[in-house]
Design a protein around this nucleic acid. Structure first.
Lengths: 232, 232
DNA sequence: AATTTTTAGTGTATTTTTTACACTAATTAA
DNA sequence: TTAATTAGTGTAAAAAATACACTAAAAATT
């Protein structure tokens, strides 16, 4: 272990970066959790995270930590909130810069690290108990995700590149926790002209095959610059 | 000077709390700025702020700093964003947990501290140059304020307890930077039933005296619980 | 004292957006 | 062959947003 030490005139809290990683499947919204192997909260589920290193920005730390702890490389993420309650960690004051992230598929490669026993996707609705103040962080992320879903095209970050309108609608219904009229939903989303129909269809189990669509991020950027505001 | 020292195994960035304090007058939206008396950025205008103390939450540090630096006691404030660019302070890595705050009147008592020469309310539209990355923080706060104004009743935090509808409309026009139809604005805001008419009128210069109103925060909370969403 | 200027205050008709709603189409399962 | 399942489509009614011009009450000017 490194014996280097760092001395300051005034005490400094440690800085952690924690991340709420959401994934989606027809069963519902999932969150990536790690089971801690060490105290405090050994055996408890917590959000992936770790300490910010010297010279790192929050975004850089996040990228490193997601790779280390979950093998996740490319991912949509943004800063959520900074949790500063001095008692949020029983050891000492640790400030957590929390992020939330959205993955298109839940095939993570959970890397068991020094302090991690296990990684699992858990259904959000299962309301599993979490260590530290991570339940509060998760709730904040859920609120933010629901709000964001309506005003920004982030839903597509939770779906594979090609998806059906039914899948998209189901995602909205799950996260916003209300049912949506099928015809009105399709009308509205297609009227935005942000979805390109692929020349493929897909059939999932029984029923009529569904048209696959792709979100046109380039067109969205272009329209945004022209004052367009996504709303669903 | 205190000679106590604090030693940690790993290096730790310092934590600052900075605040964008907005004030409003008919001339426009103002921001409270301090002129620095010490390096770095001596002579430059910066946002009020300071270091987070051990054992303090961000909210507590904010409260202390606003009192110390500007004599501000009761104030609406919320966390804005955490700025983590390692180069944002030329001395060393200092993470800034930024807040933004709204005051009802701009009669601050600017306290000249150790590192502060002067405090002034500056018109936001004057686009004054700021030290550190504070221009970025200010822009983030402006964007947030404009967004928030439409979906939450925060405009009232920038007005005295009693205000006229014209004042309120002018505030909205200033911050959203677009003109609003007088009749439609009044219709919409009054239809929400969140404004109580005072039994006073006020006359500012020439012209017909205007009815004074008061924002009913209690009613807003009540309606919010019932699923009401403010929108203007 | 009369007139002008200034700001406050009001209603309706049109357009746009949102909502509610039921059947046909294409496939798999029985 | 039939039943079950999911995809896909249009219209009419209601609600919300918009555009728009005059009267009312005071101060300022003549």
């Amino acid at each position: 272990m490194c014996a280097a030490s760092h001395t300051y005139q005034f005490p400094r809290p440690a800085i952690a970066v924690d991340c709420v990683v959401f994934g989606y499947s027809p069963e519902g919204l999932h969150v990536l959790l790690l089971k801690r192997g060490v105290e405090p909260f050994a055996g408890k589920w917590v959000l992936p995270g770790g300490f910010l290193h010297q010279g790192e920005s929050g975004d850089e730390a996040l990228k490193r930590l997601l790779l280390e702890k979950a093998g996740i490389q490319k991912i949509w993420a943004e800063q959520l909130y900074t949790f500063t309650n001095p008692a949020r960690d029983p050891r000492e004051q640790i400030i957590s810069i929390a992020y939330f992230a959205l993955v298109k598929s839940m095939d993570i490669e959970p890397v068991a690290g020094r302090d991690t026993v296990e990684a699992q996707w858990k259904l959000v609705q299962s309301r599993i108990a979490l260590g530290f103040d991570h339940a509060e962080i998760l709730q904040t992320a859920l609120d933010r995700l629901a709000a964001k879903l309506r005003w920004q095209p982030v839903g597509f970050e939770l779906l594979p590149p090609k998806f059906t309108l039914s899948e998209l609608q189901h995602l909205y219904e799950t996260i916003l926790r209300k049912s949506i009229d099928k015809r009105n939903f399709r009308k509205k989303i297609l009227a935005m002209n942000l979805l390109d129909a692929c020349d493929e269809q897909v059939t999932a189990g029984s029923g009529r095959p569904a048209q696959l669509y792709r979100f046109n991020a380039k067109k969205y950027k272009e329209l945004s610059r022209q004052g367009f505001h996504f709303e669903l």
